[in-house]
């Protein structure tokens, strides 16, 4: 029996002017699942994530988070959600600890101080609690963003290009964070160009091409389909073959 999806995307369509960025996309993400969105530039990955996060309004279809429609009940849906953008965006004049306190207040997190301290310790930011963003490296800013995202223990996590600009240690910690949150029952969607990341951490892969989902399944399922079609067995070969087929 399939678990009730935390994230349900149904016939999602997003149009900018005359460009259709996402075209009737449907997929579900169950608790504990990590779905990797892969696709070329302009395939609709970020648009999909932004529609799920409620930043962009869909032109068609629906998105529900924990059963709440992101358009009709945005506040209820967003309570269960965290969105980590590709570039950390922090308030210029808030310290690290103040970012966490603010987030705690927005999401109504009880015992915010203890939770924030625990996250700060786990992400090795203990000596930076009073630092402003200008005093932090990019990796540290990304850690602050993650700490804020995890503070309210979201059941749905969205990562947009999570490894951008991180050093090897930061990459390892980020991968561990994604996997551990999924292990704790969160539904995770991440978009990335880095196929090895998707191959390593995702339990399911969704290939997007021009806003349309052209392949959806576990790596094993996609590999089997590719072999049946006479294509290669690595994710790179599967991705290139699938997008090339669609292109023609």
């Amino acid at each position: 029996m399939t678990a009730t999806p935390t994230i349900a995307v149904t016939a999602l369509t997003k149009i900018y002017g005359t460009t259709t960025a996402v075209n009737g996309l449907s997929f579900n993400v169950a608790p504990g699942e990590i779905v990797g969105l892969i696709g070329a530039n302009g395939a609709g990955k970020t648009s999909t994530l932004r529609c799920i996060a409620g930043i962009h309004a869909p032109n068609g279809g629906s998105v529900t988070i924990g059963g709440h429609d992101i358009v009709r009940a945005p506040v209820e849906a967003k309570r269960a959600l965290a969105f980590i953008p590709d570039e950390p965006q922090l308030f210029e004049y808030l310290t690290v600890m103040e970012h966490l306190r603010l987030t705690g207040r927005i999401y109504q997190v009880a015992a915010v101080e203890s939770r924030a301290r625990a996250l700060i310790d786990a992400l090795q930011l203990s000596d930076k609690t009073d630092a402003l963003p200008a005093e932090l490296s990019r990796g540290m800013k990304q850690k602050v963003t993650i700490a804020c995202a995890l503070l309210h223990d979201p059941s749905a996590l969205l990562f947009d290009e999570p490894l951008t600009g991180l050093d090897p240690l930061g990459i390892r910690q980020m991968k561990a964070t994604i996997v551990s949150r999924a292990a704790d029952g969160a539904a995770v969607v991440l978009s990335s160009h880095l196929l090895h990341l998707v191959e390593e951490v995702c339990t399911r892969i969704l290939i997007l091409h021009r806003g349309v989902g052209i392949a959806d399944g576990t790596l094993a399922q996609l590999t089997a389909q590719a072999r049946a079609a006479g294509a290669g067995s690595t994710l790179e070969q599967i991705f290139l073959d699938a997008t090339a087929r669609e292109h023609h």
């Binding site: 996060a53 930043i55 965290a82 965006q89 210029e92 603010l102």
Partner: peptide, 15 residues
């Protein structure tokens, strides 16, 4: 809005 405001407040449960 600034990018930080968009990143923090738009996906948050804020009416």
């Amino acid at each position: 809005f600034t990018r930080a405001e968009v990143a923090f407040l738009f996906p948050a449960p804020v009416r």
